[in-house]
């Protein structure tokens, strides 16, 4: 699985577990409009650390907080390359 598909599949899994209605996922989707709250994102970031071995939020020197889903995926794709 690619980084992108791992992220998308985790988002769907968390939405089901937390009984959340989420928006149709696309790169321009603002995270705040996704239907996820902070707790959902925290769970997502933890699960991605388990799945991908990456936590760009904690490991990067200085990160720009992602605003759209595309930013979020790019943050992980960049971390996977380095």
């Amino acid at each position: 699985m690619t980084v992108r598909s791992t992220i998308l599949s985790e988002i769907y899994k968390i939405a089901v577990a937390q009984k959340r209605d989420i928006s149709t996922l696309h790169d321009d989707l603002p995270l705040m409009d996704s239907g996820f709250d902070s707790l959902c994102f925290a769970v997502l970031v933890a699960h991605l650390e388990d799945d991908l071995g990456l936590d760009p939020f904690s490991s990067a020197e200085e990160i720009e907080f992602p605003v759209t889903l595309g930013d979020f995926i790019a943050l992980y794709e960049n971390a996977a390359r380095t």
């Binding site: 603002p30 995270l31 705040m32 709250d37 902070s38 994102f41 907080f65 605003v67 759209t68």
Partner: peptide, 12 residues
């Protein structure tokens, strides 16, 4: 800090 991270991730 969680409130503030939420604000930063809102892009607003």
């Amino acid at each position: 800090p969680s409130h503030w991270r939420r604000l930063l991730m809102s892009g607003l």
